[in-house]
Structure formats: structure tokens, C-alpha cells
């Protein structure tokens, strides 16, 4: 199940969050969802309101992204604390696991 929206709707409605395959069990299979949020921390709380449990997969108890989770806003890797990452309608947030090449696992 997908919920794609047009570019015009995105700009008007809010921020798109792209959901990685392994977390789509939380979103009933949706690969992207549209939410309102003025910063990245607030956006993840909104995401969790809609899909309980998903936020804890992305950030730990300190509110920081888990060690091997990367967040992008549009094409930019997020390096700042999440409350400091301001969002605007039309932004696209990507939640991506790190590639683990070279691991002893």
C-alpha cells in the first residue's frame, strides 16, 4: 500500500517521510507517509503517534539516532541534534540503515 502525493500537495501539506523496507511493518506497508512537523524531533514524535513503536527503532532513549541509522533531509545527512533540524513543507526525510560492508558479522 502506498500513499504517493503530487508535488503540489507536498508543498501545501507537509513533510514526507520515506520508510525503509524493514520498518514498513509499522506503517501497514506504506513506503512513505506525509506529516506535519517543524523540526525533526517533533516529526518523529508525530510519526510515532501515527505508527506506535516506530520512533524507538529510529532513535534511542537519548533522542539521538541509533548508531547505524542515518537520517537525511532531502539530500543532506543530518548531523545536528534532531530538535535543531528545522523542516519546511515539501521537505523529504529519509530514514536509512547504514551499509555494513566490511563488518565481521
Amino acid at each position: 500500500m502506498e500513499s504517493r502525493v503530487s508535488a503540489g500537495e507536498l508543498a501545501r501539506l507537509g513533510v514526507t517521510v520515506r520508510i525503509p523496507t524493514t520498518l514498513r511493518a509499522y506503517t501497514d506497508g506504506q513506503d512513505e507517509v506525509l506529516l506535519e512537523g517543524t523540526d525533526l524531533a517533533a516529526l518523529l514524535r508525530r510519526l510515532d503517534d501515527a505508527f506506535p513503536g516506530i520512533r524507538e527503532r529510529v532513535v534511542d532513549e537519548t533522542g539521538a539516532p541509533r548508531r547505524y541509522v542515518n537520517l537525511f533531509v532531502n539530500d543532506e545527512l543530518v548531523r545536528e541534534p534532531l530538535p535543531a533540524v528545522h523542516l519546511s513543507a515539501g521537505d523529504v526525510v529519509h530514514i536509512l540503515p547504514s551499509v555494513a560492508g566490511g563488518s565481521l558479522a
Binding site: 524493514t22 520498518l23 524507538e56 527503532r57 529510529v58 534511542d60 541509533r66 548508531r67 547505524y68 541509522v69 540503515p97 547504514s98 555494513a100 558479522a105
Partner: peptide, 8 residues
């Protein structure tokens, strides 16, 4: 881990 190695 839940699920995969990265999600806690």
C-alpha cells in the same frame, strides 16, 4: 536486534 542489526 529488532529487526536487522540497526533498529535496536
Amino acid at each position: 536486534p529488532n529487526p536487522g542489526e540497526v533498529w535496536g
